[in-house]
Design a protein around this nucleic acid. Structure first.
Lengths: 227, 227, 227, 227
DNA sequence: AATGAATGAGATTTCATTCAT
DNA sequence: TATGAATGAAATCTCATTCAT
């Protein structure tokens, strides 16, 4: 929007040689790419991204090599934000039960704050994680997601508050399922049932139910089996 | 090629019956479309679909009007299979608890049997249900999914087995979340954590956990109402 | 352009032998062709023509050989109507002046009654009379148009009512110009000036002006011959 | 999908500039489009136009957005030439009679000099001015055609040389009819009567007759009626 | 006489990408 | 660093026409 104007001002001052602001251009293209890829999936067009970024199409190639390169950069950016989201929870300062509740709640907050994240994950799964497999970085970024949860779970199992027949990974999948699906599938749900799952009251109700459900499951003492 | 084999599949209306069979051609194109769209999303190519169906590319337009028309037909077909999947459960012949468990289990079975369903739902959500909104039929097909569950829930609440502060729709979303996510997001999960969520043992473990979790939640007597 | 042209299932009830009405089918196709070609030019589609005629597309080929054959048949039909239009004027029973006025008036009537004629002539001129050149018949049909006028003109020149330095062909072109153009070019005139040249009052005004103008010209005694 | 993405004309100042010259490429494509559309109507092929212009087919889309966009640009160009044609007549420096004669004559000259104009008008009328309606510009360009004539007519009526019961618009239609039709319909006339209306002697004869006829009509003092 | 099914060829259009400055 | 111009390859779609009954 007003970015366009800003660029014009810059151009005017550089008379002879034309050293523009490299990082700024790159950043604007990346930002535009995140919003466009999130909005349209791989149908997003390089030309549109460049226009939104107020940059030349050629620059996208200059900085990111190809459309897929740009997509991957945008994807990594989305996961970077995910990792940062959970840092706000100080797992070890809370009781096991509180920590699990806080981690669940943080996930809900993150999905509200960064809806693009869910878009990218949906897209990547349609493409069978084709692009993500190229990225070493994303796996590293996601590591804390499990380890944080694991510390809380282990402590709760040690104190006897939590059942033993569940792993951190399983627990993580449960939570992710309950938090992710209603957002990722909001469109088909709305088309079929006419219910808008993004309404704040609905989201809060869901947050509470999810916490209740997970803690109830963790608190249950298993009878005998374990599979 | 495999033409000889494909010919055999033709229904008996023409005496000699080699070349011209409208229904068979249409059906083969639709079948090919389902597998191609599920595999590649809207990037699937009409030419490939026609080739797989052993038909002329032009015939896809003859029967379905456009690429989007063909996609929509394939989408509806996927939902038709979903509706049929749940018919196997005789909700009213089972106890409320058994009925809920059976419905959850049926969902797991369906997702194993018709993986294309999940692909279509993922794709539609990437496209923000753009195509599904055109279809009156899909909403109708999905109606029983809620009403079946509702009958079981109501009965359980009447007998006092189930808590009262949950609606059939909420329950349905819970179950769908827990069953859908690990399949829909299997690719990114695998890329990040290296865990294959489709292994039979894993699926069975998940089926059991989901049933336990949901029934535990339903059995819980809520202290005071909230929200 | 025309999106959903997907085949609909159609009930069929012809049990045994199926002797349809050959002439009627041919006539309906031709009628449909006239209205479609007049409305859309050569962009008219055989499929649409067949549908309007409630006939099978194949029948158009059966009776007319090809799209161009059908077009030519429609074109000839349009000229047939033109020839018939002028038969209503009994040139020799009227005074020369009255006869010319009547022939002009008949042209105006014809253009109102058979607007398709003008459409075909426009189309043919866009195609540089490519198709009409194939037709012996059309030239024959048009012959009376000149000869009728010629008889009136000759008589008027013999009596001294009409000037001598004009031929029947030239006179015919004048009349045709004044009558044809405002109809043929009504669309661009309307687009540019916003005037609707088809309003009855406008047409009548034009009819009168044309008669006045032509008779005035014919009545003028030329000073010296030129050219 | 995204229709109008056509490049806008951009100033270019490259010194040598053989291969990359935006204006030249654009201009050559437009020029080729004018001749091809005039010759073949909307059946003209983008590929042929590009070939004639010695440009890549893609560039037609780059500069004009779509085939219709290119056609519209060509159409506007044709009307631009029309407007320029009449500028040569200095209406106010001539007597009313001379001015009308000069304007008629200029129209004949224009139709000889720019035959494409007539082709475009014919085509547009076959398409019912579908494209022209999109163009604000054309109506503006045509405005002087009436106002020039109107000034001459008004002056002649003021001096008593011209009759009063005719409007500038009516007069304009008369002139246009007499000048346009023999060119626009030359092909069917030739096919039917074998007369070539484009021969110079024939054109000159027509020019004289038209001027005589119109001036005679204008000079006539109307007896009593008025429409 | 009549028809539904099928096809081949070609048209427009789209888009990522590279050229040349 | 930055850019407007240019391109090739492919995808969708259209349509007249023919096949086989």
């Amino acid at each position: 929007m007003s970015q366009a104007r800003a660029r014009k001002a810059v151009e005017v001052m550089t008379t002879a040689g034309k050293p523009r602001n490299a990082d700024a251009t790159r950043a604007k293209i990346l930002e535009a790419a995140i919003s466009e890829f999130a909005a349209r999936g791989l149908e997003a067009r390089i030309e549109d991204i460049a226009d939104i970024a107020n940059a030349n199409r050629r620059m996208a190639y200059y900085y990111f090599g190809s459309k897929e390169g740009l997509y991957l950069a945008a994807l990594e950016e989305a996961y970077l934000q995910l990792a940062q989201a959970e840092e706000s929870v100080d797992v070890d300062a809370l009781s096991p039960t509180e920590a699990v509740a806080a981690l669940i709640s943080a996930k809900f907050d993150h999905f509200i704050a960064y809806p693009q994240y869910i878009e990218f994950v949906k897209i990547e799964n349609v493409y069978r994680a084709r692009h993500m497999k190229e990225s070493q970085r994303i796996a590293e970024l996601c590591d804390p997601l499990i380890t944080n949860l694991e510390r809380a779970l282990k402590r709760g199992q040690a104190t006897g508050e939590f059942r033993h027949d569940v792993t951190a990974f399983e627990l993580s999948m449960m939570i992710a399922s309950l938090a992710f699906f209603p957002v990722s599938n909001q469109h088909t749900v709305f088309a079929i049932f006419g219910t808008d799952l993004t309404e704040p009251a609905t989201v809060e109700r869901r947050r509470k139910m999810t916490i209740d459900m997970v803690l109830l499951y963790l608190a249950q003492k298993q009878a005998r089996q374990s599979d």
